[in-house]
């Protein structure tokens, strides 16, 4: 595990095992917030940012939990630090970029319940990544999420213009498209061996 190169970790998290399309993490925002290209790309940015912050925090907390020998507290402490990280990011953005804060709106607090974030923290612990590896992994996962949601939003904007029957409209067709996207992402499986 320790020998994986940083580039491979990045590639693995962003394309080969894309968080949304291969590991099914963060499906709720993927479907809920992918109506417009603009909001989707902002959501992607916000998630990437929170992922980086919470990855660092999770790494620290994991060390502390190992030190006091209390692995059963892992889940509870992770969710608490993610919630506080989101809160922190929210305050930070509000202070330094009110325009971005306005644009992200309700999505910011919702990131707390985005399973991709908690999944990331759990996976990096399970894979025993060191600090730099965790950071690269978080960046890869964030980029992968942003890529998937932006692709989806682009497709859905096209979809708005096309004609189809009422029955198909809504979540059903979005899921079908996601399926096709997911299969095309499997083409990356050969990358990196």
């Amino acid at each position: 595990m320790k020998t994986e190169s940083l580039f491979y970790i990045f590639l693995n998290a962003s394309l080969i095992n894309n968080f949304v399309l291969a590991a099914f993490l963060g499906i709720c925002p993927f479907i809920g917030v992918s109506k417009k290209l603009e909001t989707a790309s902002r959501m992607g940015m916000a998630v990437t940012f929170v992922m980086l912050v919470s990855s660092v925090c999770a790494y620290g907390v994991h060390l502390a939990l190992v030190a006091i020998n209390a692995p059963y507290l892992q889940l509870i402490s992770y969710i608490v630090i993610i919630a506080s990280a989101v809160q922190l990011v929210e305050m930070f953005i509000k202070k330094f970029s009110p325009a971005l804060f306005q644009a992200l709106g309700i999505f910011l607090p919702l990131i707390t319940t985005n399973c991709a974030i908690l999944g990331l923290a759990l996976f990096q612990t399970a894979k025993q990544y060191d600090f730099v590896q965790s950071l690269v992994y978080a960046l890869g996962a964030g980029v992968g999420f942003a890529l998937a949601i932006i692709l989806m939003a682009g497709l859905r904007e096209e979809l708005e213009l096309s004609e189809m029957s009422d029955v198909v409209k809504g979540t059903a067709i979005v899921l079908m498209i996601a399926g096709i996207l997911s299969i095309s992402f499997m083409g990356f499986a050969g990358l990196g061996g």
Partner: peptide, 10 residues
């Protein structure tokens, strides 16, 4: 495969 999950739910 992951794609199948999306198809079946859809």
């Amino acid at each position: 495969l992951p794609g199948g999950a999306f198809f079946v739910l859809g």
